[in-house]
Design a binder for these strands. Structure first.
Length: 656
DNA sequence: ATAGGGTTAG
């Protein structure tokens, strides 16, 4: 009489059930009357599915071996159906294909396509593509027709290893063997292979020749175009795509975001909302990144609400949470970013890095360094980005020694190899405090090839510390690496102009003219009360309130002058009359934006200005003064960092 | 068996 506990003990996983079997031949017991052939076949089938179930439940190689022993005992050593599953399990547990799986395979006289496939797949997964290829050739000599997913597995491997030669050969094979022309899996993995290997046109050709395409084929190509920067082709395909799903929509949102077109990304996302397409984590990450680029608070709030409503708030999802931290910090709301960070239930290296970098670019460097130390205690290992953040923080507050110590510890304690970026931080660290020769020495002795960023950091430091000689050296290297980046020439012009070296200024100007480089127009934007964006270009009079803005600026500059503000005429690199320089300076777009902000918002409202270029010295001093005499909080995000102006001082410490 | 994903810097 079975007790209750005995009965419950039978409620176990398939592998446990299996292990209770007695190893005896279940199918050939002497029975009377004997089983008919169809009954026998049924019994065989049952046994096979039992074995498959047992294999599915295996959690170790040992289990698989037990099932194998049982299988042999039942006389199923030729049963390809079960054996291919068995080999798949061995692959899953990383048993080297050369050993046990190969042995099993060799004992089979007539392997079926599934068994071949299991072997080929196993070798591919273990990184021995060449062995897979020779197995494939054996299979072909054997007269066996490959399965469509044998090809898929190959294409996937070629896409991962960027082995376009093998991919092309396999493509030829599909044509040679024939009959795969309408197979979606083969076609789609082939498109993926070609596009990942950078042969967009070949991918497109496969796509065009496919008689049936599904949404996956379309999406693969859309992604390929957007990765190549061709959003126009991506959009054209998307428009033609008959049935769009959330993945193809997301591909468009992310595509625009990754191509620095945040407004279009937001447009697509809005349309997704009106068409009631489901929003998931991946969609959110794309649109959050777009918001971060735009830096618009109202959009930020809206996107965050959508995230919360979809059930992926910072509390639920680390990735969304980390993206929101980055977004808020780039929108100028560093306190909100910190709030989100604290709300997060789970934090990873991305969350910490985003927060540390955020604090650093907002000039809250001691907090950034503190957070870095908190992170070390939380057992989350810092990565290369974390170090960029904390080194940036050190350099912003002039903590040279601490920065140098951290830099040294990177490799020895945290196993992070210093990259060019980290050396850039070191050049910046030394350059900011005026140790320009030492910074130059770092560049000369660094083990990695210095890139434009490194020389740019040095050139930037030369501007602050007015050193035209080293500037010349840095600029020459920079011009070689980035002959067409206008900002470098302008920076050098500024440095020469500050030193009154007008001949050199005109030399550089001549160089720019010869190269046909045009100054990209500086512009600033500010968010209105209702979330609308107001854009200002230098000297722009197109804004409906231009007259008032101009007047407000005149008033402001007069009040500032009374408080000792002197226009930094050196910020103008044209050799003009001082009066003309004064006029030009007052036209700078961030000043126009500031005047609009002062006119249109209440006293307790923080004015947030975004700018596409680096803020000039004059505007910086102007903002400092304005924050003092108006008592307003002003934040300017230029292309480098945030400047928080409060009561006459800036968070960057006049150092940027 | 096949498609979309986050942080960095002068």
């Amino acid at each position: 009489m079975p007790t209750l506990s005995r009965r419950f003990s039978t409620l176990s996983t398939p592998i446990d059930l299996f292990l209770q079997w007695k190893p005896q031949r279940e199918t050939q017991q002497l029975l009377w009357p004997p089983l008919s052939p169809s009954q026998l076949q049924k019994q065989q089938k049952l046994l096979q599915s039992k074995l498959i179930l047992a294999l599915d439940g295996c959690t170790s190689v040992k289990h698989v071996k037990q099932v194998h022993a049982h299988l042999l005992c039942q006389g199923l050593d030729q049963c390809c159906f079960v054996l291919s599953k068995l080999i798949r399990m061995l692959t899953k547990f990383c048993v080297p294909m050369e050993t046990y799986p190969r042995l099993i395979f060799h004992q089979v006289r007539c392997p079926n396509p599934f068994l071949w496939n299991a072997m080929i797949r196993g070798f591919i997964l273990q990184g021995t593509l060449s062995e897979s290829v020779s197995l494939y050739n054996c299979m072909r000599r054997d007269g066996t027709r490959p399965l469509s997913f044998t090809f898929s597995v190959f294409f996937k491997a070629c896409s991962a290893t960027l082995d376009v030669d093998l991919g092309t050969q396999m493509h030829a094979q599909t044509i040679l063997v024939g009959g795969y022309g309408s197979d979606l899996y083969v076609g789609n993995t082939m498109i993926d292979m070609y596009t990942k290997c950078g042969l967009l046109e070949s991918g497109r050709k496969v796509f065009d020749e496919m008689p049936d395409k599904d949404v996956i084929s379309w999406t693969e190509l859309i992604v390929a175009y957007s990765k190549s920067g061709d959003m126009e082709s991506a959009r054209d395909l998307f428009v033609e795509l008959p049935v769009k799903d959330k993945v193809s929509w997301t591909a468009m949102v992310t595509g625009y975001a990754q191509n620095a077109r945040p407004r279009e990304a937001l447009e697509v996302f809005k349309r997704m909302q009106t068409e009631e397409v489901e929003t998931d984590v991946v969609t959110l990450i794309g649109v959050i990144s777009a918001c971060a680029q735009l830096g618009a608070s109202n959009y930020a709030k809206w996107v965050r609400d959508v995230a919360e409503r979809s059930g992926f708030g910072p509390h639920e999802n680390v990735v969304v949470g980390s993206a929101l931290v980055d977004m808020y910090s780039k929108c100028g709301s560093i306190d909100e970013a910190f709030k989100v960070f604290k709300q997060m239930k789970e934090r990873n290296v991305f969350s910490y890095s985003s927060m540390i970098v955020g604090l650093a670019i907002h000039g809250r460097c001691h907090e950034a360094i503190q957070l870095f130390h908190d992170m070390l205690e939380s057992e989350i290992k810092p990565n290369h980005v974390t170090f960029i953040g904390v080194l940036t923080a050190c350099s912003h507050v002039g903590l040279v020694e601490q920065g140098q110590q951290l830099f040294a510890a990177m490799k020895t304690h945290y196993d992070v190899d210093p990259s060019v970026e980290h050396y850039t931080c070191m050049v910046d660290l030394l350059g900011r405090v005026g140790r320009l020769e030492e910074a130059l020495e770092v560049i000369k002795t660094m083990p990695v090839e210095p890139n434009a960023c490194v020389w740019g950091a040095l050139l930037g430091a030369c501007r602050t510390h007015r050193n035209p000689d080293i500037a010349q050296l840095a600029a020459n290297n920079l011009f070689e690496l980035e002959p067409n980046t206008i900002g470098n020439y302008i920076l050098l012009c500024n440095i020469y102009a500050s030193a009154g070296m007008w001949d050199e200024v005109s030399e550089v100007r001549k160089l720019m003219r010869e190269k046909g480089l045009k100054k990209s127009p500086g512009y600033s934007w500010i968010e209105g009360k209702k979330g609308e964006i107001h854009e200002f270009f230098a000297g722009d009079m197109r804004h409906p309130m231009s007259i008032e803005i101009k007047q407000a600026l005149e008033d402001l500059v007069n009040r500032l002058k009374a408080h000792g503000y002197v226009p930094h005429l050196n910020s103008v690199t044209y050799d003009l009359h001082d009066e003309e320089k004064r006029r030009l300076l007052l036209n700078h777009s961030e000043k126009l934006a500031l005047a609009y902000g002062l006119l249109s918002t209440d006293v307790d409202y923080t004015i947030k200005i975004m700018k596409n270029l680096r803020i000039c010295e004059d505007c910086h001093a102007f903002m400092c003064g304005a924050s003092k005499i108006t008592g307003r909080e002003i934040i300017v995000r230029d292309n480098m960092r945030f400047h928080h102006f409060h009561n006459g001082t800036c968070s960057c410490g006049n150092f940027w």
